[in-house]
Structures are given as C-alpha cells and as structure tokens.
Design a protein around this nucleic acid. Structure first.
Lengths: 339, 339
DNA sequence: AAACTGAACGCAAACGCTTGCGCAACAGCG
DNA sequence: CGCTGTTGCGCAAGCGTTTGCGTTCAGTTT
C-alpha cells in the first residue's frame, strides 16, 4: 500500500539501514550508493514515516506552538513568522490554540505534546503553574510576550518604556485628563497589561497629575472591548481629552466609539495605541511600534539554537526595540473655557 | 525516564494490552480494573506516545492544515475556528504555512504530511497538480475558499454573486466610472479573483457601461498593494468615482491612498470592499460580508464527519451566505460639470 | 456432571524506522 | 606478506504501542 523503507531497500538492492543512512545524510554510505538510493526513493515517492522514525530515534522534528487567539493580528503575525523559521529548518509545527479556558484546561491536563515535540514555543508567557507543566516535558522552551520565567527563553519588549513614551507624548502635548483603555489580564497571567498600567500611573505621577480611577476602563484587547471602554470613559462626568489604549485594536474600537459620538480625532480627543498594527497606518493612528513578526522569528531561532546545542543554557530574556510612531490621532488639547 | 505503558501495567498489576484497552475505552476490561488503571495512569502522569500508537494503529489523530499567509486576518480567522473544532474533537493540528513559493515547493516535494495525518484541510483550494499530490495521500481532504475539485469537500461562498452585489450597489448609486482593485491570482491558482473580476465585468455590461481596462489595478490582496493600486487609478486621465476592492484589506489601502490625495470618502470617491474584516466597521467600510470563522469551522466539521464515516463520499461543495453591508464609504457620485 | 458459553485478560507479533555492533574487503604500512 | 586501520555495508535489537488470537475461569445450559 504505502511504500516503506524496505521497499526502497529492495528496489535499490541494499539493506534498510543503508537506505536510512543514505537518505538522512549520515556517514557510512558511499556517494555512489547514496545517489542511487536517493534516485530510487524519489522514483517510488518514498517519505519516511515520522511516527516510526521518531519512535526509533526519540526525535520528532516537531515544535509545539501554543497560542491564544490566532485570529488576532498580533498572534497571527507572530505565529506566521515563527512557522516560517521552523519549517525552513525542517521542523513541523503542531499548533494549539488556547484562546478559550476549556481549550487551555484540556491542553494542560492531557498534555498532548508530551512525547510529541522536541521543543515548545508559547506565544504568551504561561503562568507559573502552566510553565511548570511545560518544564516537566523536559524540552527546550521559549516564549514571546511577557516577563522572564525560569527555563524559558523569552523575547519581548520593554513594555514599561513603551507605554511611558506613549503617555509622556500625551503629557507633552499638554493633556492633563488622560484616560487609559487597559487590557485585563483575564484568564492569562501575563505581565504586559500590568507593566503598561504601571507605566501609565508612573508618567502621570511624574507629571504631577492626579490619577482618576474613573479614567481607566477595560477593553479586553479587542476592537469591541475598546469601543465599550471608550464609551464608558465618555460617559464619565469629566471625560478625558486623550486616551492611551494598550493595544491598537482597542484604540481602533475607541476611534469607532468617538466617531459614533461625533467627536473628532484629534481635535476633541487624542488617541494613542500600542503595537503598530498593520492597519494603524490606514486610520492614521499614533502608536508604539514593536517588531511583531521579528519577535516570532527571533524566538523561533533561539529555540532552534537550543536544539542544536543542547548544553547551551536558555538565552534568558532578549529585548526588541520599540519606537513611538506619530501619526494623526494625537494633538494638543483644545483650549477650553472655564468649567 | 519517561513513563511508558509497561510502567503503568506493572504498577497496576496487569498487562500492557489491558492498559491500552482500558485507557482508550475499548471493551474487554472490567469496570473495576479499568478505573484502577485510570487511577494509576493519572498518578504516574502517563501519556501514550503518539508516535508509537500511530505506528501501531495507523491512526495519527492529527490533521494537517495548509494555509497561505496566516498573518492575514482572513486566513488567521479561518485557521482559528478550524483549530478549535479539531482540538475539541481530540485531534492535533499540524500547521503548514505556504505563503512563500519556496515553502510551497518544499511542502509539495517533501510532502511532510505523508503518513503523518489522518486528513488535510487546505485553507485555499490548491491547483490541480497540487491537489493531485494531496489526493495521493489517500486521506480525506477539505478546503475553504475556491471552486470545486474532485476529492475535496469545499466550503466557500458564491464569489460571483457577492461581487455582483457590490458592483451593482455602486451602479445603483449612479456611478458610471467604476474601478476595481483586483487580486492577482499570483502563485496560487484560486478562482476567487477570477470570479470576482468576471462579476465586475458582468455587472458593468449589464448596466451598459463600457469597460475601461485602465480602471482595473492589482492590489495583491494586501493593504499596501491596495494603496498602490488606488494611486494608480487616481493617476489615470479620468479617475473612477467609485472603486470595488476585492478584499477589505485592499479597500483599506485604497482609503489610505485617498486620504493622502486629500480626497474625501464617499463624497469624492466611493469604496466598497469584500470580506467584512474585523476592522471594516471601524473605518465605516461598505463591504460584502461572508462568514469567515464559519467557513473554517464548517470545513473542519465536514472533515471530521468523513473521518467518522469513512465510506461517506466527500460533501462536494457547500455554500455559505453572503450579505452586502452598507456603511459610510459609498454614496452617489458628486454631480460634475461637463467634461 | 459434562459440555458449552462469554467475559476478562495475557501473549506475541506486528508497525517502520534508527543505530550499535560485527564483518568483509581493501588500502597502506613496515 | 602479515598486520592494522578504514570504509562500506548488513544484522538485529530495540522504540512504545495496538490487536488478533489463545487461555482461563465463572457461570449457564443440556
């Protein structure tokens, strides 16, 4: 039915071991025989069974990638880049979408990656319990987005610095009532929302602006959530003149809400986002740019390096550059009359 | 080192076969022994090796998903939905990103999915040669997006009807010079761009409007491409008063180009897109909505059904509903003076 | 009481590879 | 011309499951 290594061996008049060595570039095969075997294998359309070879060798040539919300631009882009690096290196990618909490629970109880992968890349740093579970797999681990964790190579950005530059930009423009559309950490325990919030508070304090809790709303990292959050902020007794959204998608939701309220951006309200989403440019969104695909590719590369040099320690945490991109959604506040 | 089925068997005082049967819910094991084995397995943290079990059984409980451009909203969303269906059914997902032509070639020459998957879902209908290669795997096949192909269950939309409704909307508003930002089929041989182009031509002809080839530009299905295409159209001697973009991402690129040219939408130029992108609402884009996640989920479900009932024929082609969504980027053309 | 069930379980043979080891054959050396 | 290396290849023992078949044994039927 399907062609096996012994079929190739028979057709080439050699043993299965020789075929195995020849096809994988192992020494102990003469060039002459090797090319002959390669030709026969190609003619027969032979592909080695991954199940069999990984059972025999212990190597799976597969990387597990766990990601929340693949459909979201950020994670989709990271995944895309990481996958390209892996597949170029001959690794297959086993994808686990842990967006829902059931999926998350299913994954961590059944641990379907056990004995199935050579390494795991998590697109979001898992919480302590979950990372312990991953460590128990005994394979190299990497993560994008989030703080350092023992056993993990993580590539990320300086969230505090990024958020600070965004808020400071608003302060420098003269804004005093600055709102924030925060991302709740939700079921995922990542440090990003926390760091960005801390940065917001820090810059306000630094500028001598008193923090008004009513000016912070949760946007859930989605467009719709951002819209709801902005609507909330507009409903307060003294709405903000500027808003820092912790992601571009929430910022875009905010833009939508503002449009619905017939408020002009940036004349009535300034908005700054975070990420430099592919479409941020389209809507002219001022934002903090970070290398999204770059982080995925870099994390993948570091993981591959660990596989090549098993005794090298995990790389710890590497930081990618960020940059404030000024566009059209931020301006000085409108002068107002006395309240 | 890692715990195997014989470890469990020894600890439970039974044979490996009994453990195997017990854990997979096969008959031939008393309830008493079964619960005891389950407990022991849990205590030892046992997970069956997929390599070994698929080698022995022939089943891999893995689905291969091949997708172009995972980072793009459309495919990311389809993938997300499909993955959820698969993993809920206990299948793992092996992801292959075939965005670049090298990746594509690598995939179809090495065929890494051979003997590795129980079924394949392609997020884009492959060309005839490639689908023949997939058929040679001898597993159920499904695809989203594109026309029917032998051996494939495909779920898609009526591209012609969708595009017609978009262009007809522009005609009904009174536009006569209607441009199109097309998507080149590029290295991928899918029918979508062709169908949408045919629909465009058809509606023009139907309305008695002569087709001007200068009003069609290629946008490559990207935001940047859309911007370039729109810029091209604006550079013609008689620019269009309305544009039909074959995807929302290209439409958003067009919006950006128009903004850069200080042209107002919809007063100066109307724009209609296709897809109902997550952010289409944010920019107020009129578009043809299609169920994106729905197509991924449905294709996944149909594939699983084929796996459950091996003798059932592939479902052929199922069509999902589309709907024109009117927003703010389309309006009647501005009355003009004589030319 | 003997013969016949069926359920519950163990044995052992696959499944298709990888890899340590052994064995020719042959080259180079003194 | 014997000796030691080296090269090229085959043998066979795994790797951790699944599964057809055989065995045991308690319970039922004649």
């Amino acid at each position: 039915m399907t062609v096996s290594i012994t079929d190739v061996a028979r057709a080439a008049g050699v043993s299965a071991s020789t075929v195995s060595r020849a096809l994988r570039g192992r020494p102990g095969v003469s060039d002459e025989v090797r090319t002959q075997i390669t030709a026969v294998a190609a003619e027969l359309g032979y592909t080695a069974s991954r199940s069999a070879s990984s059972l025999a060798s212990g190597r799976t040539y597969t990387i597990g990638v766990v990601a929340p919300y693949i459909g979201r631009w950020f994670f989709g882009t990271v995944l895309d880049a990481a996958e390209q690096v892996f597949s170029a290196a001959g690794y297959d990618v086993l994808l686990y979408n842990l967006g829902s909490s059931e999926a998350r629970k299913r994954f961590f109880t059944k641990m379907p990656v056990r004995k199935r992968v050579d390494a795991v890349l998590s697109l979001l740093i898992p919480d302590e319990e979950e990372s312990a579970a991953l460590r128990s797999l005994g394979v190299p681990l990497a993560s994008t987005v989030g703080g350092a964790r023992p056993g993990f190579t993580v590539v990320g950005i300086d969230d505090r610095a990024g958020a600070e530059s965004a808020v400071r930009h608003l302060v420098n423009l003269g804004h005093r009532r600055i709102g924030m559309i925060a991302g709740a950490s939700g079921p995922l325990h990542w440090t990003t929302p926390i760091d960005r919030r801390a940065a917001y508070l820090h810059v306000l304090a630094e500028a001598g602006i008193e923090h008004d809790p009513a000016l912070v709303a949760d946007g859930d990292y989605t467009v719709d959530g951002g819209e709801r959050a902005m609507t909330e902020l507009l409903a307060t007794s003294r709405p903000p003149t500027a808003v820092f959204a912790q992601s571009d998608e929430m910022a875009m939701g905010a833009l939508r809400a503002l449009r619905r309220h017939r408020l002009r951006v940036p004349e009535d309200v300034s908005v700054v986002g975070f990420d430099d989403h592919e479409l941020a440019d389209v809507v002219g969104l001022t934002t903090v740019a970070q290398p999204v695909a770059g982080q995925g590719a870099e994390a993948a590369r570091l993981l591959l390096r660990q596989l090549d040099e098993p005794d090298s320690a995990p790389a710890g945490r590497v930081e990618m550059p960020i940059r404030l991109v000024l566009r059209d959604t931020t301006a000085p506040p409108r002068p107002r009359g006395p309240q």
